[in-house]
Design a protein around this nucleic acid. Structure first.
Lengths: 210, 210
DNA sequence: ATAATATCGATAACAAAGTATCGATATGTC
DNA sequence: GACATATCGATACTTTGTTATCGATATTAT
């Protein structure tokens, strides 16, 4: 069987949130049509997505078992075995990510944070901030695979290189740069400018039509 | 001519950043191959992207004029005529976005911020935070088109509805929910869970190969 | 001048993702 | 029990995006 498509993969967490809601409300089954309506998708798209991760599939007339889907998507996305991560750059955005409780639901656990200035105070969570020089040792010692970069653009590539040299295998980059990485490293550039470009183009189209 | 593809559109800001660098370094022309190498793309992809926005196109042997491309991409992305936006939810993430200087480069100007608790203090920037009840009037008065949502998931849909009723036409949603919006509203859900799903799937693939 | 080469744009082939169609099958109604 | 219906999965088709190919053209070197 082929791997799941990138697009499908990105829809799964969305489905899961919705299915969890249904589950909480005691709803036991759901059809692809219902899910599709919720997210303005084509029912066939939803069925194909679910076909990848669902063991038993859906039943005619009734649809899919909500409980089964919740279990299967969670498992598929790896939400059951948590991955450790380190974060570098405890500015505003970094603090925001550190303070975000939701990551635990997504199987992500930020075990340590780093900065070059170590005198920063995180008000609420009061986690310790380590000096960046401590990163390689800690990453090696704990076998951390994921690095989150929330430093300014100027220092992002240097941090990235340091992470890779320390054994990090996946990098989630929130700085406004496209990092250069070897092929055996997973990288996700979270590009605000790209998102904004899509949004404002749609806005322009809408304004033109009115 | 057809509109630009979503994928191309998202690559343009990346190109622009790179081209600005080249420009600063006094480099006057660049080939599609060079750009492609920088971002691990196919040169043909780059040429097609640039064909959409470039008036004169590139010259054989030398490539494209850096200065021309910078001007044309900036113009195409609307970076020259700034759009006003309002932000609702001045928690950590909201403050981070409010404090981010880079948006001005992307033609985005956050003119006001709102929260239900109005006693929050933003340390550095010291902008005023308005009560959410002031939003409709301000949006109508200034004719603001863009709304940024950085509230918790529970209140996101309510904020969204309020924005739309006030005349907002484009919504940039950072809360972990997929908002329901009518078709004449531009919406961009910034879904961390989806990004993370892509990253960790690639990580898994890499770990498997080693 | 001539030749070699890097690059372009255009066209065509290919790949990936989304959508439509259709027969099969549970469920509920008459 | 027969019939209508919502839904499924499979297959085929369409659209969108990427990659390969190729002739044309500036630039540089001989």
């Amino acid at each position: 069987m082929e791997g799941i498509s990138k697009e499908s993969l990105q829809r799964l967490p969305t489905y899961l949130r919705y299915l969890n809601e249904l589950h909480l409300n005691g709803i036991e089954s759901v059809s692809s049509t219902t899910i599709a309506d919720r997210f303005k998708l084509n029912p066939v798209t939803v069925r194909k997505d679910l076909a990848f991760i669902s063991e038993d599939g859906g039943k005619p007339k009734t649809g899919f078992s909500v409980a089964d889907l919740v279990a299967e998507i969670s498992e598929f996305l790896g939400y059951n075995n948590t991955q450790d991560a380190v974060l570098v750059g405890v500015g505003k955005l970094g603090s925001a990510l550190l303070g975000y409780k939701g990551f635990s639901n997504y199987g992500l656990n930020i075990v340590a944070s780093f900065d070059c200035k170590t005198d920063i105070q995180i008000d609420s969570t009061k986690r310790e901030i380590n000096n960046i020089s401590m990163l390689p040792d800690l990453v090696k010692r704990l076998g951390v695979n994921i690095g989150i970069i929330t430093v300014p653009a100027e220092s992002a590539q240097a941090v990235c290189d340091l992470m890779i040299n320390s054994g990090i295998k996946a990098i989630w980059n929130f700085s406004p740069t496209h990092l250069i990485t070897p092929d055996n490293i997973a990288i996700k550039n979270e590009d605000m400018a790209a998102s904004l470009a899509v949004l404002s183009q749609r806005l322009t189209a809408i304004l033109k039509n009115e």
